[in-house]
């Protein structure tokens, strides 16, 4: 236990000054959303492709197709949550009394 009266403040490590990060040029929200939609779409197409391969009896393996489907499912759910949040915020603003 440190005794502040005896040891003084010198023994305490001075907390490093919080470095304020240089403002990075952030992408607009619309672009981010577009990117997320694009990524989800890619995953869905990938899942569809591997599922089709399995059905067609091609070389595709069943578990890889299932994993691709799960990946697409999770990605889509995440996107849905983003959409819900955005819509919620929009409606909150629209309900504002002026």
């Amino acid at each position: 236990m440190h005794d502040i009266l005896i040891k003084g403040i010198g023994s305490y490590a001075t907390p490093a000054l919080k470095q304020t990060a240089a403002p990075t040029p952030s992408a607009p929200f619309g672009d981010m959303l577009k990117g997320a939609v694009q990524e989800t779409n890619n995953l869905l197409q990938e899942a569809e492709g591997s599922a089709l391969k399995v059905v067609a009896g091609d070389t595709g393996s069943l578990h890889q197709a299932m994993i691709a489907l799960e990946k697409a499912d999770i990605s889509f759910r995440a996107l849905l949550q983003v959409r819900n949040k955005v819509l919620e915020a929009y409606q909150e603003i629209m309900r504002m009394q002026i």
Partner: peptide, 18 residues
Amino acid sequence: DISDTLKVCGSALSAQRA
């Protein structure tokens, strides 16, 4: 990333299939 975990699982499933 969750996709890394899925990748590891997928490789293990492939190995067990082999």
